[in-house]
Write a protein that binds this DNA or RNA. Structure first.
Length: 325
DNA sequence: AATTATCACAACCGCAGAATT
DNA sequence: TAATTCTGCGGTTGTGATAAT
Protein backbone atom coordinates (compact mmCIF):
# COMPACT_ATOMS: atom_id res chain seq x y z
CA UNK A 1 0.00 0.00 0.00
CA UNK A 2 1.14 3.51 -0.69
CA UNK A 3 4.66 4.59 -1.37
CA UNK A 4 7.94 3.96 0.28
CA UNK A 5 8.44 5.79 3.57
CA UNK A 6 9.98 9.22 3.59
CA UNK A 7 13.39 9.94 5.07
CA UNK A 8 14.46 8.62 8.46
CA UNK A 9 13.86 11.72 10.49
CA UNK A 10 16.31 10.66 13.20
CA UNK A 11 19.09 10.31 10.70
CA UNK A 12 18.87 13.54 8.79
CA UNK A 13 20.94 16.63 9.27
CA UNK A 14 19.18 19.89 10.02
CA UNK A 15 20.25 23.49 10.05
CA UNK A 16 22.32 25.55 7.65
CA UNK A 17 23.71 23.94 4.53
CA UNK A 18 27.45 23.67 4.10
CA UNK A 19 29.11 24.70 0.81
CA UNK A 20 29.95 21.04 0.22
CA UNK A 21 26.32 20.02 0.54
CA UNK A 22 25.29 22.83 -1.77
CA UNK A 23 27.85 21.79 -4.34
CA UNK A 24 26.75 18.16 -4.24
CA UNK A 25 23.09 18.99 -4.62
CA UNK A 26 23.66 21.56 -7.34
CA UNK A 27 25.98 19.36 -9.35
CA UNK A 28 23.64 16.41 -9.21
CA UNK A 29 20.50 18.30 -10.17
CA UNK A 30 22.23 20.16 -12.97
CA UNK A 31 23.42 16.86 -14.37
CA UNK A 32 20.49 14.56 -13.69
CA UNK A 33 17.57 16.76 -12.69
CA UNK A 34 15.49 15.98 -9.68
CA UNK A 35 14.17 12.80 -11.20
CA UNK A 36 10.75 13.81 -10.00
CA UNK A 37 11.42 12.37 -6.58
CA UNK A 38 12.91 14.56 -3.91
CA UNK A 39 12.69 11.90 -1.25
CA UNK A 40 15.19 9.53 -2.84
CA UNK A 41 17.46 12.28 -4.14
CA UNK A 42 19.55 12.85 -0.99
CA UNK A 43 20.29 9.15 -0.73
CA UNK A 44 21.47 9.05 -4.32
CA UNK A 45 24.01 11.78 -3.74
CA UNK A 46 24.98 10.82 -0.23
CA UNK A 47 23.42 13.72 1.61
CA UNK A 48 22.06 13.22 5.08
CA UNK A 49 19.24 15.57 4.40
CA UNK A 50 15.50 15.22 4.11
CA UNK A 51 14.25 15.38 0.53
CA UNK A 52 12.01 18.20 1.53
CA UNK A 53 14.99 20.15 2.76
CA UNK A 54 16.84 19.50 -0.51
CA UNK A 55 13.90 20.74 -2.50
CA UNK A 56 13.69 23.91 -0.46
CA UNK A 57 17.40 24.53 -0.71
CA UNK A 58 17.33 24.10 -4.46
CA UNK A 59 14.24 26.22 -5.06
CA UNK A 60 15.17 29.04 -2.73
CA UNK A 61 18.89 29.25 -3.09
CA UNK A 62 20.71 27.03 -5.57
CA UNK A 63 18.41 27.30 -8.54
CA UNK A 64 19.90 29.34 -11.39
CA UNK A 65 18.91 32.99 -11.88
CA UNK A 66 17.77 33.48 -8.31
CA UNK A 67 17.88 37.07 -7.17
CA UNK A 68 18.38 37.92 -3.53
CA UNK A 69 17.54 41.25 -1.95
CA UNK A 70 17.56 44.55 -3.78
CA UNK A 71 13.87 44.72 -4.44
CA UNK A 72 13.00 47.53 -6.81
CA UNK A 73 10.19 50.03 -6.44
CA UNK A 74 8.39 48.30 -9.23
CA UNK A 75 8.66 44.96 -7.50
CA UNK A 76 7.36 46.56 -4.31
CA UNK A 77 4.35 47.80 -6.21
CA UNK A 78 3.66 44.43 -7.74
CA UNK A 79 3.94 42.66 -4.42
CA UNK A 80 1.67 45.14 -2.70
CA UNK A 81 -0.94 45.17 -5.39
CA UNK A 82 -1.04 41.41 -5.63
CA UNK A 83 -1.21 41.15 -1.86
CA UNK A 84 -4.28 43.35 -2.00
CA UNK A 85 -5.86 41.10 -4.55
CA UNK A 86 -4.95 37.62 -3.47
CA UNK A 87 -3.47 37.89 -0.01
CA UNK A 88 -0.52 35.83 1.10
CA UNK A 89 -0.40 33.58 -1.94
CA UNK A 90 3.33 33.95 -2.12
CA UNK A 91 3.89 31.32 -4.76
CA UNK A 92 1.53 33.10 -7.13
CA UNK A 93 3.07 36.46 -6.36
CA UNK A 94 6.53 34.99 -6.87
CA UNK A 95 5.48 33.72 -10.27
CA UNK A 96 5.07 37.34 -11.36
CA UNK A 97 8.57 38.28 -10.31
CA UNK A 98 11.22 36.44 -12.29
CA UNK A 99 14.11 35.30 -10.17
CA UNK A 100 12.26 35.78 -6.92
CA UNK A 101 11.18 32.93 -4.70
CA UNK A 102 8.05 32.77 -2.63
CA UNK A 103 10.18 32.49 0.49
CA UNK A 104 12.14 35.57 -0.46
CA UNK A 105 9.03 37.61 -1.10
CA UNK A 106 7.38 36.35 2.04
CA UNK A 107 10.43 37.35 4.10
CA UNK A 108 10.65 40.67 2.35
CA UNK A 109 7.02 41.39 3.02
CA UNK A 110 7.14 40.34 6.67
CA UNK A 111 10.39 42.04 7.56
CA UNK A 112 10.43 45.17 5.47
CA UNK A 113 7.53 45.97 3.20
CA UNK A 114 4.85 45.64 5.84
CA UNK A 115 6.83 47.76 8.28
CA UNK A 116 7.59 50.24 5.55
CA UNK A 117 3.89 50.72 4.94
CA UNK A 118 3.00 50.80 8.61
CA UNK A 119 5.77 53.25 9.31
CA UNK A 120 4.53 55.43 6.49
CA UNK A 121 1.01 55.26 7.80
CA UNK A 122 2.19 56.29 11.25
CA UNK A 123 4.25 59.11 9.84
CA UNK A 124 1.28 60.40 7.89
CA UNK A 125 -0.96 60.16 10.89
CA UNK A 126 1.61 61.91 13.07
CA UNK A 127 1.85 64.81 10.68
CA UNK A 128 -1.91 65.03 10.56
CA UNK A 129 -2.13 65.12 14.33
CA UNK A 130 0.47 67.83 14.55
CA UNK A 131 -1.45 69.91 12.08
CA UNK A 132 -4.58 69.49 14.10
CA UNK A 133 -2.80 70.40 17.32
CA UNK A 134 -4.01 67.24 18.90
CA UNK A 135 -0.71 65.67 19.63
CA UNK A 136 -1.01 63.50 22.67
CA UNK A 137 1.28 64.31 25.57
CA UNK A 138 3.54 62.06 27.58
CA UNK A 139 4.64 59.88 24.68
CA UNK A 140 8.38 59.89 24.80
CA UNK A 141 9.00 58.52 21.39
CA UNK A 142 11.46 59.03 18.69
CA UNK A 143 11.53 58.20 15.07
CA UNK A 144 14.46 56.53 13.50
CA UNK A 145 15.33 55.76 9.97
CA UNK A 146 16.49 52.39 8.86
CA UNK A 147 19.06 51.83 6.19
CA UNK A 148 16.48 52.12 3.48
CA UNK A 149 15.21 55.41 4.81
CA UNK A 150 12.07 54.03 6.33
CA UNK A 151 10.53 55.52 9.37
CA UNK A 152 10.29 53.30 12.39
CA UNK A 153 9.16 54.32 15.79
CA UNK A 154 10.63 53.49 19.15
CA UNK A 155 8.60 53.87 22.27
CA UNK A 156 9.72 53.86 25.83
CA UNK A 157 11.84 50.92 26.81
CA UNK A 158 12.93 50.36 23.27
CA UNK A 159 9.88 48.38 22.34
CA UNK A 160 8.20 49.20 19.13
CA UNK A 161 5.35 51.59 19.52
CA UNK A 162 3.26 53.89 17.43
CA UNK A 163 2.35 57.52 17.35
CA UNK A 164 -1.10 56.59 18.47
CA UNK A 165 -2.34 53.69 20.53
CA UNK A 166 -2.43 50.41 18.69
CA UNK A 167 -5.87 48.86 18.69
CA UNK A 168 -6.01 45.98 21.08
CA UNK A 169 -5.26 42.73 19.33
CA UNK A 170 -8.32 40.58 19.08
CA UNK A 171 -8.11 37.32 20.95
CA UNK A 172 -9.13 34.43 18.81
CA UNK A 173 -10.25 31.13 20.24
CA UNK A 174 -8.32 28.08 19.17
CA UNK A 175 -9.03 27.18 15.60
CA UNK A 176 -9.68 30.69 14.44
CA UNK A 177 -6.22 31.52 13.26
CA UNK A 178 -7.52 31.67 9.73
CA UNK A 179 -9.74 34.51 10.80
CA UNK A 180 -6.78 36.34 12.25
CA UNK A 181 -4.92 35.96 8.98
CA UNK A 182 -7.96 37.17 7.10
CA UNK A 183 -8.23 40.15 9.38
CA UNK A 184 -4.59 41.01 8.86
CA UNK A 185 -4.98 40.75 5.14
CA UNK A 186 -8.09 42.89 5.26
CA UNK A 187 -6.45 45.55 7.39
CA UNK A 188 -3.31 45.64 5.28
CA UNK A 189 -5.46 45.81 2.21
CA UNK A 190 -7.32 48.79 3.55
CA UNK A 191 -4.09 50.40 4.58
CA UNK A 192 -2.68 49.94 1.12
CA UNK A 193 -5.78 51.42 -0.34
CA UNK A 194 -5.57 54.41 1.92
CA UNK A 195 -1.98 54.79 0.87
CA UNK A 196 -3.44 55.21 -2.59
CA UNK A 197 -1.07 52.64 -3.90
CA UNK A 198 2.05 54.63 -3.14
CA UNK A 199 4.79 52.63 -1.57
CA UNK A 200 7.73 54.92 -1.98
CA UNK A 201 9.28 56.73 0.94
CA UNK A 202 9.22 59.79 -1.18
CA UNK A 203 5.66 60.68 -1.93
CA UNK A 204 6.70 63.10 -4.61
CA UNK A 205 8.61 60.45 -6.41
CA UNK A 206 5.99 57.83 -5.96
CA UNK A 207 3.47 56.72 -8.44
CA UNK A 208 0.97 59.23 -9.59
CA UNK A 209 -1.55 56.61 -10.47
CA UNK A 210 -3.27 54.62 -7.80
CA UNK A 211 -1.85 51.18 -8.24
CA UNK A 212 -4.67 49.63 -6.32
CA UNK A 213 -7.97 48.03 -6.94
CA UNK A 214 -11.14 49.53 -5.63
CA UNK A 215 -13.13 47.50 -3.21
CA UNK A 216 -14.65 44.72 -5.19
CA UNK A 217 -13.70 41.15 -4.50
CA UNK A 218 -10.73 39.05 -3.67
CA UNK A 219 -9.05 36.64 -6.02
CA UNK A 220 -9.20 33.69 -3.66
CA UNK A 221 -12.91 33.90 -3.98
CA UNK A 222 -12.53 33.50 -7.69
CA UNK A 223 -10.38 30.45 -7.19
CA UNK A 224 -13.01 28.93 -5.00
CA UNK A 225 -16.01 29.83 -7.05
CA UNK A 226 -17.70 27.52 -9.43
CA UNK A 227 -17.14 27.83 -13.13
CA UNK A 228 -20.59 29.33 -13.55
CA UNK A 229 -19.91 32.07 -11.09
CA UNK A 230 -16.63 32.88 -12.77
CA UNK A 231 -18.41 33.07 -16.07
CA UNK A 232 -20.91 35.44 -14.49
CA UNK A 233 -18.06 37.50 -13.15
CA UNK A 234 -16.42 37.70 -16.53
CA UNK A 235 -19.68 38.79 -18.10
CA UNK A 236 -20.18 41.41 -15.42
CA UNK A 237 -16.63 42.50 -15.90
CA UNK A 238 -17.07 42.85 -19.60
CA UNK A 239 -20.19 44.90 -19.02
CA UNK A 240 -18.50 47.13 -16.47
CA UNK A 241 -15.57 47.60 -18.71
CA UNK A 242 -17.78 48.57 -21.56
CA UNK A 243 -19.82 50.99 -19.50
CA UNK A 244 -17.35 52.77 -17.41
CA UNK A 245 -13.79 52.25 -18.41
CA UNK A 246 -13.54 53.60 -21.85
CA UNK A 247 -11.97 56.87 -20.98
CA UNK A 248 -8.26 56.64 -21.68
CA UNK A 249 -7.69 59.25 -18.98
CA UNK A 250 -9.66 57.43 -16.33
CA UNK A 251 -8.33 55.33 -13.53
CA UNK A 252 -8.38 52.15 -15.54
CA UNK A 253 -6.40 53.81 -18.27
CA UNK A 254 -3.80 55.01 -15.83
CA UNK A 255 -3.69 51.65 -14.17
CA UNK A 256 -3.36 49.81 -17.40
CA UNK A 257 -0.68 52.14 -18.61
CA UNK A 258 1.25 51.72 -15.42
CA UNK A 259 0.83 48.00 -15.42
CA UNK A 260 1.72 47.75 -19.04
CA UNK A 261 5.04 49.38 -18.28
CA UNK A 262 5.75 46.59 -15.89
CA UNK A 263 4.97 43.97 -18.50
CA UNK A 264 4.36 41.57 -15.74
CA UNK A 265 3.06 38.32 -16.96
CA UNK A 266 0.66 36.70 -14.59
CA UNK A 267 2.07 33.22 -14.59
CA UNK A 268 0.31 31.00 -12.15
CA UNK A 269 -2.98 32.80 -12.49
CA UNK A 270 -4.10 30.58 -15.28
CA UNK A 271 -6.87 29.19 -13.17
CA UNK A 272 -8.26 32.66 -12.88
CA UNK A 273 -8.44 32.91 -16.61
CA UNK A 274 -10.54 29.82 -16.78
CA UNK A 275 -8.23 27.05 -15.67
CA UNK A 276 -6.43 26.92 -18.98
CA UNK A 277 -9.74 27.24 -20.72
CA UNK A 278 -11.33 30.20 -22.33
CA UNK A 279 -12.12 33.54 -20.85
CA UNK A 280 -13.81 36.43 -22.50
CA UNK A 281 -11.77 39.53 -22.92
CA UNK A 282 -13.14 43.05 -23.04
CA UNK A 283 -13.11 43.00 -26.80
CA UNK A 284 -15.32 40.00 -27.04
CA UNK A 285 -12.70 37.53 -28.10
CA UNK A 286 -11.48 34.61 -26.09
CA UNK A 287 -8.07 33.43 -25.17
CA UNK A 288 -6.40 30.57 -23.39
CA UNK A 289 -3.04 32.25 -23.17
CA UNK A 290 -1.43 33.81 -20.14
CA UNK A 291 -2.25 37.45 -19.75
CA UNK A 292 -0.47 40.54 -18.62
CA UNK A 293 -1.49 42.84 -15.82
CA UNK A 294 -2.88 45.36 -18.23
CA UNK A 295 -5.03 42.67 -19.76
CA UNK A 296 -6.32 41.16 -16.59
CA UNK A 297 -6.76 44.21 -14.42
CA UNK A 298 -10.24 44.94 -15.70
CA UNK A 299 -11.12 41.35 -14.89
CA UNK A 300 -9.63 41.57 -11.45
CA UNK A 301 -11.43 44.77 -10.65
CA UNK A 302 -14.74 44.69 -12.48
CA UNK A 303 -16.43 47.38 -10.44
CA UNK A 304 -13.64 49.83 -10.88
CA UNK A 305 -14.95 53.36 -10.86
CA UNK A 306 -14.34 55.36 -13.98
CA UNK A 307 -12.16 58.00 -12.42
CA UNK A 308 -9.46 58.37 -9.84
CA UNK A 309 -11.48 60.99 -7.99
CA UNK A 310 -14.47 58.75 -7.83
CA UNK A 311 -12.35 55.94 -6.55
CA UNK A 312 -10.81 58.08 -3.85
CA UNK A 313 -14.24 59.12 -2.77
CA UNK A 314 -15.58 55.64 -2.42
CA UNK A 315 -12.46 54.30 -0.76
CA UNK A 316 -13.04 56.27 2.39
CA UNK A 317 -16.78 55.98 2.54
CA UNK A 318 -17.22 52.55 3.95
CA UNK A 319 -15.40 49.35 4.71
CA UNK A 320 -14.42 47.00 1.98
CA UNK A 321 -17.26 44.81 0.85
CA UNK A 322 -17.08 41.80 -1.28
CA UNK A 323 -19.48 41.79 -4.15
CA UNK A 324 -19.47 38.09 -4.78
CA UNK A 325 -20.88 36.48 -1.72
C1' DA B 1 34.46 46.67 25.18
C1' DA B 2 30.51 44.18 26.66
C1' DT B 3 25.78 43.57 26.58
C1' DT B 4 21.27 43.93 24.69
C1' DA B 5 17.96 44.76 21.10
C1' DT B 6 16.67 44.53 16.49
C1' DC B 7 16.82 43.05 11.81
C1' DA B 8 17.14 40.00 7.88
C1' DC B 9 17.14 35.75 6.08
C1' DA B 10 17.51 30.66 5.86
C1' DA B 11 15.40 26.73 7.24
C1' DC B 12 11.91 24.01 9.51
C1' DC B 13 7.10 22.54 10.53
C1' DG B 14 2.52 21.26 9.68
C1' DC B 15 -1.23 21.07 6.67
C1' DA B 16 -3.99 20.14 2.38
C1' DG B 17 -4.43 18.22 -1.88
C1' DA B 18 -2.43 15.25 -5.41
C1' DA B 19 -0.42 11.02 -6.60
C1' DT B 20 0.50 6.26 -6.12
C1' DT B 21 -0.17 1.52 -4.91
C1' DT C 1 -11.81 2.64 -3.23
C1' DA C 2 -8.97 3.08 0.67
C1' DA C 3 -4.62 3.71 2.60
C1' DT C 4 -0.45 5.82 2.42
C1' DT C 5 3.11 8.85 0.80
C1' DC C 6 4.69 12.91 -1.84
C1' DT C 7 4.65 17.64 -3.07
C1' DG C 8 3.92 22.33 -2.56
C1' DC C 9 2.57 26.02 0.17
C1' DG C 10 2.24 29.36 3.95
C1' DG C 11 3.37 30.28 8.70
C1' DT C 12 6.77 30.21 12.14
C1' DT C 13 11.20 29.74 14.30
C1' DG C 14 16.25 29.89 14.73
C1' DT C 15 20.42 32.16 14.02
C1' DG C 16 23.99 35.27 12.59
C1' DA C 17 24.89 40.15 11.69
C1' DT C 18 24.46 44.73 12.94
C1' DA C 19 23.11 48.71 15.65
C1' DA C 20 22.23 50.82 19.94
C1' DT C 21 23.11 51.42 24.74
Amino acid sequence: MGRAPCCDKDNVKKGPWSPEEDAKLKAYIEQHGTGGNWITLPQKIGLKRCGKSCRLRWLNYLRPNIKHGGFSEEEDNIICSLYISIGSRWSIIAAQLPGRTDNDIKNYWNTRLKKKLLGKQRKDHHQQQQQQGRRSGGMKQEAKRDESGNIGVLGEGGSQSTYWPEPALPVYPTGQLDRRADDEHASMRQLLMKREGRFSDDDNASLQSPFIPPRSFTLPQLFDDSANEVTTLVNTTTASFGEGLQSPNGFAGELDELLHCSSVKLEGLDCFYGGGGMVADPHGSTTSESMYWCEVSPLLYPNVVPSYQGMQQCLFEEPVHLIMQ
